[in-house]
Design a protein around this nucleic acid. Structure first.
Lengths: 119, 119
DNA sequence: CCTCTCTTGACAACGGCATTGTCAGGGTTC
DNA sequence: GAACCCTGACAATGCCGTTGTCAAGAGAGG
């Protein structure tokens, strides 16, 4: 758990919104919406500027995965996050292994997404 | 809640689709969609007619709660059901107590529903 | 100082999803 | 035979998610 370099502390707020947005390939607008919905809480500088940590980035990538690949809407993401928090465990990892097709067969990589696309 | 009469076995398929639909106040069409999405699996008579059990009804009421009150879409419902199955526990009950604002633990009883309504 | 980027708030547009509704042709039940 | 169920399809309506933009104001850096 001990970070070899304290500079790479994943909780350290480093990315300004434009950088964070380009990292996760979304519009800055989208990140602000996620924050309005309470799905991410980036730190702020003393002068009120958002700073995203590595963990914030990961959280946003989770939201993207749930919404884009699994078709879940933001309300569903919120429920899943709350659930994870309440259970105190990384519940979502099960979903990820499921979504990445850990069973070995690569064809089953996105059950929901494919179904949605096939409509 | 132990059934005094075996006739009231909650797993027993009894309701035809029109009856089930009126019980949960949705269009029969909606119930068929839920089945197409794999969210409910009512039994069938030998002649292919859907029969919903008490448990099926409850499951549908869950879907209605998640979609109408919490704003979750069907993809999110699917994920939650899968999660519950994988964890082997009634995970969703936590959401219900949270949604009904029972026990009055904290003021965060309706963050999602209220927020959605306020939009 | 000047310019770029950030802040919030609002509005618009586009595509997609959820639900209801209906119509068709055919089978089941009473 | 009338009322209900089946599947499959198509449409209408309303809401949601995302992107995009414009405004006016404040911070950051050359």
């Amino acid at each position: 758990m001990a970070a070899p370099h304290p500079d790479r502390d994943p909780t350290r707020p480093v990315y300004v919104i434009s950088v964070a947005a380009s990292i996760v390939s979304v519009h800055p607008r989208t990140l602000r919406i996620y924050e309005d919905e309470g799905l991410v809480c980036p730190a702020r500088t003393r002068t009120n500027i958002r700073l995203y940590s590595e963990n914030d980035i990961r959280r946003v990538l989770w939201i993207r995965h749930l919404t884009q690949n699994l078709g879940v809407n933001l309300a569903g993401v919120r429920i899943l996050f709350e659930l994870e928090e309440r259970l105190g465990t990384r519940v979502l990892e099960r979903l990820y292994s499921e979504a990445t097709g850990s069973a070995g067969a690569d064809a089953a990589s996105e059950p929901a997404a494919v179904k949605r696309a096939a409509r």
